[in-house]
Design a protein around this nucleic acid. Structure first.
Lengths: 325, 325
DNA sequence: TTGAAAGCGCTAACAT
DNA sequence: ATGTTAGCGCTTTCAA
């Protein structure tokens, strides 16, 4: 490995001079600088980030932890954050955790140990111990989409209101019964993630009057496709399926073809996130638009702002009206 | 920041002892070890990765450079690579370059400077200078999907053969004319990327006999949607559009609805990559299956293998037959 | 079983 | 304009 020492030796100068030349310091003669830069190029010298950052204490890196890179929703979020950080002269280092709780902790730990200037992450689970562990970290941690704790900065959307609006809209369209598809509750014995909890709350609250009693069903387990089929068969009333994310909606759409059912003629369908993929479908699925750009922008601003009190910001969503209801 | 020194002081031992305790070295008394670990927990000490790696010279990090995180194809590739690396005790650090040539170089440079144990990347452009610059790096660099240079390790697929097979299949299905949609050629004055070049070659070669003369048209610019519409109008012969990637195919599919044309009744359509998104479409698009898993696996193996001669491996693709042809 | 000290590659303060 | 040196936080000999 070529070090600054090698360059210095090759140039017949001290390492301090080499450092001056590469750091654009003024106090080097033009001649020396050129000589040094030429040698650096010849030798293929690359300054070690590790050594540099050990001295400076800064990395200009922001860590991002993402648990799902297949869902284009997260791809979009990542892309936006990356762009905003680059503009500020920072780099984004993304860590993928494969829906694993152990990896989640490990990834945060790794980034903190890497001494990154901040960590953005989308929590995969919620627990009091996890939150207090995070609060003890020397690194600034911001949670996205899922609120973790009062004292941990958070950027997301008004989940409950989003669902209330969604249910209201479905009711307004004349639907008489509603099936809500949620991710599993209390996953691995943890508290429900913020989004799961609040979306469910929103659905329940709005349904109290709009879809009372058995006109609302909530389904949270893996067999939701079969159950959806059954549920649709059980009544001839006008029925709608509300999905807590677009992937579920896509699965239902796909299944509906096999079932020989038309949307919206045979039942209504609504998703959440409004992922880009929806554009390509023949059936224009109504979905809750998630303001990814706004959340990303606020997150990056939060990262660089000084604030005493923790930031908890929820942006409003809005319904993107399609043809599936 | 809490350092090993602080821990040592708090425990009344030397930093060497603290190090022994955290490094699972045998030569510490059980009592001391426990005391140290307890203090570490209390103080919230996190060993600095930078300092550690500066000493050891190892990072156990593999860098990955991706230029597009919105396309689920790359998401899938990333996820697979991540999983394989974790199994070997390595971490993946992903850098996103926003389709920018400057960022491409910068990202590689950053990872090399970070002293990662290897770099995987999907080249965004091809040039002799770029290749020789890469070869001078002290870090092992492996290119994926796009071959860069004879001496730089490469993993991908038989692009030319894939396209020959695709064209052959289209011909076999009775199509009489073919429109091939390729990404722009000689982007920003660079040599064509390997995939672009070879796919085009494959199309040309197979078409020589199967779609001679004006029965083949190649379109490479941005206005391909309008041109496709026109091209379809120009003849009543059985026509097929072959896309060099699924995103183009999705765009054509979407446009075809606006055009009031049915697939495959009015024209045939074929894509490349067989991205997961296709599953959700009503029209089951025929596409070339890209063996992502195999490529990822080979790439990771290449990373850890010692080999004198550069590795250049192309996996076979196969057609996933849908209903669009 | 423990401590002292060298040194990883670099930056920055201080000398010359 | 250039060189010398301390030290960033850690690991790893070498002594004790």
């Amino acid at each position: 490995m070529v070090t600054i020492k090698d360059v210095a030796k090759a140039c017949g100068v001290s390492i301090a001079t080499v450092n001056r030349a590469i750091s654009d310091k003024p106090d080097v003669s033009q001649k020396t600088r050129e000589k040094v830069l030429k040698k650096i190029d010849e030798l293929g010298y690359i300054p070690q980030f590790m050594a540099r950052s050990l001295v400076s204490g800064k990395t200009h890196i922001i860590g991002l932890i993402v648990f799902d890179v297949m869902n284009p929703f997260f791809g979009e979020l990542t892309a936006v954050i990356n762009r905003l950080l680059r503009k500020r002269g920072y780099r984004l280092q993304t860590c993928i955790i494969d829906n694993s709780l152990e990896d989640e902790k490990e990834a945060i730990n790794h980034l903190a140990s890497l001494n990154v200037d901040g960590i953005l992450f989308i929590p995969l689970h919620k627990s009091a111990e996890f939150a207090s562990w995070i609060k003890k970290l020397p690194t600034k941690v911001i949670s996205l989409l899922n609120e973790l704790d009062n004292e941990i900065d958070f950027l997301g959307v008004g989940e409950k209101e989003a669902m209330e609006t969604a249910v209201g809209w479905i009711h307004q369209k004349g639907y008489e019964r509603l099936l809500y598809l949620s991710p599993p509750l209390h996953w691995r014995g943890n508290k429900n993630l913020d989004t799961i909890e609040r979306r469910l709350e929103g659905v329940m609250k709005a349904s109290e009057h709009l879809f009372p009693g058995s006109s609302l069903e909530v389904r949270t387990d893996e067999g939701y496709l079969e159950r959806s089929r059954e549920w649709l068969r059980e009544s001839s009333q006008k029925s709608a399926i509300l999905c807590s994310n677009d992937i579920y909606a896509l699965d239902i759409l796909k299944a509906s073809r096999e079932w020989g059912l038309k949307i919206p003629q045979d039942f209504g369908l609504m998703g959440f996130d409004n992922i880009d993929t929806l554009r390509y479908l023949e059936t224009d699925i109504t979905s809750v638009y998630y303001p990814v750009e706004k959340v990303a922008k606020a997150a990056v601003e939060c990262l660089f702002s000084q604030h005493e009190k923790p930031i908890h910001q929820r942006f409003p969503t809005k319904i993107r009206h399609g043809e599936s209801l």
